[in-house]
Write a protein that binds this DNA or RNA. Structure first.
Lengths: 206, 206
DNA sequence: GCCGAACGGAACAAAGTATTCCGCTCCGGC
DNA sequence: GCCGGAGCGGAATACTTTGTTCCGTTCGGC
């Protein structure tokens, strides 16, 4: 099957992509969206979805894991920058641009993670932590890597109807936040500890 | 009925308060929570709720309107400060502390607003705008009053299981954001226009 | 003791939604 | 050309969730 340029197999491959992309959009907009919304957005029937994923949970898990991988890739890519602060800035910017935070954190807890996902989550945490450490000297002394997590969370909360403007506005507030984190001298409450942020990853109730 | 200190009427008044408070907590945690969750949290039966509010929508509307009034009160109180920046800071801090943003913005759109609410919303917007204008000279030149709205939105997104820590962390990031807004010089995308943020207030679909 | 406001919570009905199923289409090999 | 079956659309199903109603009970005030 040498990559057909037309025909059924090709169409199936296209659908595969369309479904993933539609699922990203739909669940990004509303993590509790019904699966039919994904089918509608992708312009396919429901069975095209169930042919690929045994259940909604599997789709969610796949989506989340993809997001996690994107996160890791962004961290590894940014780590190449020689300057610690620049690396940190690049990393957060890329993650915000990829709109990956909602995919990972907001979907977590709606499915039981695989072992591989847990490993990747640990790896992602370590990479982010390393980037943070390199940048730490350039920012307010009381900052912790938990701050980075919360910055991403706050940027993800920025939302307007137009997706393009949403992206622009997120970059704007990331800039404001980073300016504040770097230059800010106003005393503030303690930064979050890792333990305070890990609750999101607990598996579905029951 | 001169404020009985015991008896049925007193109990009813207590329930009234308990219900409102429970509703605030529950809908703050999840705007789509079922009404039975409110009853459970308040420690009362469902009928105690329906005796006071004809429908869920009415309860939501009341809650949101209360939040709006708190917002207005905070703005009026903060406006008394002689220094524009201090007034602005105080205002946002009070709104964040009162956890009023989710009550207003996140509940909006789940009910059809009353005329009075619309008027109050306009008034709230005008007050916030006035506070912003007084503080504007002290911040980065491209800031708009829409930034204030988004700061509140971002702070509302900060959430950990412990409510007390949630409050502390919100204050922390408000500080970071305000530092960034005041001292930040890094160029950034255009701030949101009022039109871009008004979509939240549109009534329920249909 | 009796009345009725206030209540608890089961019962009901309407939605919403994950998953299954069946019949159709149409590519690809012969 | 023709057939088999992969791939599919979407109605049907089974079940869960949830807003609202209803009825029997409680108990403070007279």
């Amino acid at each position: 099957m040498p990559s057909p340029t037309s025909g059924r197999a090709r169409q199936a491959a296209r659908n595969h992509e369309a479904i993933l992309s539609a699922a990203r959009e739909v669940f990004l907009a509303d993590p509790r969206a019904p699966i039919s919304a994904v089918a509608d957005r992708a312009g396919v029937g429901i069975s095209a979805l169930y042919r690929r994923y045994p259940s909604k949970e599997d789709l969610l898990r796949t989506l989340c894991h993809d997001g996690l991988r994107t996160f890791i890739a962004a961290a590894e890519h940014a780590a190449a920058a020689p300057d610690g602060w620049t690396a940190f800035e690049t990393f957060l910017g890329d993650v915000v641009d990829a709109d990956v935070h909602s995919l990972t954190v907001h979907l977590a807890g709606t499915f039981t993670p695989t072992e591989e996902m847990n490993a990747d989550a640990v790896r992602a945490g370590a990479l982010a932590e390393a980037l943070f450490r390199r940048a730490h000297p350039a920012m307010r002394a009381d900052a912790t890597s938990g701050d980075a997590t919360m910055l991403l969370e706050m940027c993800a909360a920025v939302r307007v109807p137009d997706p393009v403007r949403t992206g622009e506005l997120r970059r704007r507030y990331l800039t404001v936040l980073l300016d504040g984190l770097r230059d800010g001298r106003t005393p503030a409450a303690a930064a979050p500890t890792p333990a305070e942020l890990s609750w999101r990853w607990r598996p579905p109730a029951g």
